[in-house]
Simulated assay, not measured.
Amino acid sequence: MSELSEEKRDDLDDDKFAFPKQRKEPLEDASHVRNAIARFNQVEDVTDDERDAAWKRIKAAARKFDVEVNEKSWREIGKD
Rank of each mutant, 00 (worst) to 15 (best):
D13F: 14
A61W: 09
E50C: 01
N70D: 13
N70K: 08
E6V: 04
H32I: 09
D15G: 12
K72S: 07
E76W: 00
A36T: 01
R34H: 09
A62M: 09
R63H: 13
A54L: 03
K64M: 13
K79E: 11
D10R: 13
H32W: 10
K79S: 04
D15V: 10
K56L: 14
D15R: 15
M1H: 15
A18S: 05
K64C: 15
D66K: 15
Q22I: 02
M1N: 15
E7M: 09
D52R: 03
G78E: 10
A30T: 08
P26W: 03
E71K: 14
D48M: 02
K8A: 14
R51H: 01
S5M: 05
E25H: 10
S31N: 10
Q22G: 12
D15Q: 15
K59V: 07
S5C: 02
A36N: 04
K21Q: 13
S2D: 07
V46R: 00
M1I: 15
A30D: 07
D52I: 07
V46E: 01
F65P: 02
A61N: 13
A61M: 14
D48S: 00
F19M: 07
K56H: 01
A36L: 05
I37Q: 05
R23N: 08
D45N: 09
L12V: 14
V69R: 03
G78V: 09
D11I: 05
A53W: 02
F65S: 06
K8Y: 12
A53M: 04
N41S: 03
R34F: 01
T47R: 00
K72G: 12
H32G: 01
R57K: 12
A38F: 00
D10L: 07
F17Y: 07
I37V: 04
S2Y: 11
K64S: 15
I37C: 02
E28K: 11
E3W: 15
A36H: 03
L12M: 11
P26T: 04
E71T: 09
V43C: 09
A54K: 01
D80I: 14
R57H: 14
R75N: 03
A38W: 08
D48E: 02
K79T: 07
A36I: 03
A18T: 04
P20G: 03
D66N: 10
D29I: 03
S2R: 09
E68I: 12
A30N: 12
R9Y: 06
D80H: 13
R75S: 11
D15C: 05
S5R: 10
A18G: 06
D11W: 02
A18H: 08
K59Q: 14
K21I: 08
V69W: 08
L12D: 15
L4T: 06
R57G: 05
A54W: 00
L27W: 06
K24N: 10
R75L: 11
A60E: 10
N35M: 05
N35I: 03
Q42D: 12
D13K: 02
D49F: 15
E25K: 01
D15Y: 11
A62C: 11
F17V: 11
I58T: 06
L4R: 11
V33D: 10
D80M: 08
S31H: 07
I77P: 12
S31R: 00
R75H: 02
A62T: 15
T47V: 01
K56E: 04
Q22E: 15
A62H: 07
E6H: 05
D80T: 09
F65W: 15
D49A: 12
T47E: 02
